[in-house]
Nucleic acid binder design. Structure first.
Lengths: 202, 202
DNA sequence: ACGATACGATCCGGTTCCGTATCGAAACTC
DNA sequence: GAGTTTCGATACGGAACCGGATCGTATCGT
């Protein structure tokens, strides 16, 4: 975070406290503008301020620049983790694969592609991205390991490669519509079944 | 194309002919700047002109604006098609999958990620992208169909989904290094083998 | 009531880029 | 040689944005 009001120990600084509504409005405006198609570098502080109904100074009082604001804003996009039922490995995988690239915030779907260049250029953005998705990866990793333990999956399975097999096709489709003819709705099921027939123990 | 010198019927207009060296230098400068990390919209005509050692007017004489220039420049990135040997379906797939996202021009690897937002926003860029990769897709499609014919692959194979299974993981890795731990070198082989065990007839 | 701070709004100088115009020199046709 | 067009270079007016400064107002603790 930046220099947001420290919630811990409150000696309560004098003067007018910062408006929480402004905090929220700035973040929301940032995400809205991104979701509407603005690229990261096309995003201007002035546009954010106008959209949020906020003075520029109010933004600069909180963040040193566009990058810091952006990092804070993107943190909000992390949705809730899906909860695999734990019965059938196949069903759990369908759930997790279907959740790949899906966030609780519908704007996230529009924003993600715009971030690809940033993630590639800036190591800190890359790290943030990884941190956000790591819990989901861990979830899938555990399901795969469970499948190996229970004998539903092959014992010699390469877990990391398998995760790439499961998530790659979905992400390419969700981010780029790589195969325009494919139906997104049933794709997760098809991907899981396609890969499963390869990794299922027999 | 724009108003490049028409090679067909040459009534030979008077005056100084346009410099082919300038043509080339402009395109090259555009690709270089993109490969160095510039985003599409951060790319400026002025920067291109400077880099190419060319006056801005020389650019505007050839293209109406940045978009037209960009489209022409990107056309240059299309590399040569890989040539599957035609013996083993597995080996052909390893070759094709390894070639996914690989262009003859090494700059292409750096440029591709920067285009993701554009491809998502602008239908004509999306179309250009699709046109460039369609021949490669057709190649893979034919290998898969051949495999079905020869009995190496399952008869009930969904070709389009299978292509997504094969190319998705590689592209995510090449564009985003989605799974940082994975080794890019042997990934094509691992992906093909992983998927093959699922689709191979038995 | 008072000092302190945050508020939205506005203005400023500086930078970058756009697309066009103009320059003298060079290259080509007739 | 005359005429035409392109060459690289440079300048222009306009626009957008940056980061900072300041204005008058609003909201807090004391």
């Amino acid at each position: 975070m930046s220099d947001m009001t420290s919630t811990a120990d409150a000696p309560r600084s004098p003067g007018r406290p910062r408006s929480i509504r402004a905090d929220e409005a700035i973040i929301e405006a940032t995400l809205d503008l991104l979701a509407e198609g603005s690229t990261v570098e096309a995003l201007s502080i002035e546009a954010i301020a106008t959209r949020a109904g906020v003075g520029k100074a109010t933004i600069y009082r909180r963040w040193p620049g566009k990058d810091a604001l952006l990092l804070d804003a993107l943190r909000r996009l992390k949705g809730i983790l899906p909860q695999p039922a734990g019965h059938s490995v196949r069903d759990d995988l369908v759930l997790l694969v279907g959740a790949v690239g899906q966030h609780i915030d519908p704007r996230a779907a529009k924003i993600m592609p715009c971030l690809v260049p940033e993630v590639n250029r800036r190591p800190d953005h890359f790290q943030l991205y990884q941190n956000i998705i790591e819990p989901r990866r861990q979830l899938m990793r555990e399901v795969l390991r469970r499948g190996i333990r229970t004998g539903e999956l092959r014992a010699d399975l390469d877990v990391e490669v398998t995760m790439a097999l499961l998530t790659g096709p979905i992400l390419m489709q969700r981010i780029l519509r790589w195969h325009p003819e494919l139906d997104d709705g049933i794709l997760p099921e098809k991907v899981v079944d396609g890969v499963l027939d390869g990794i299922r123990a027999r």
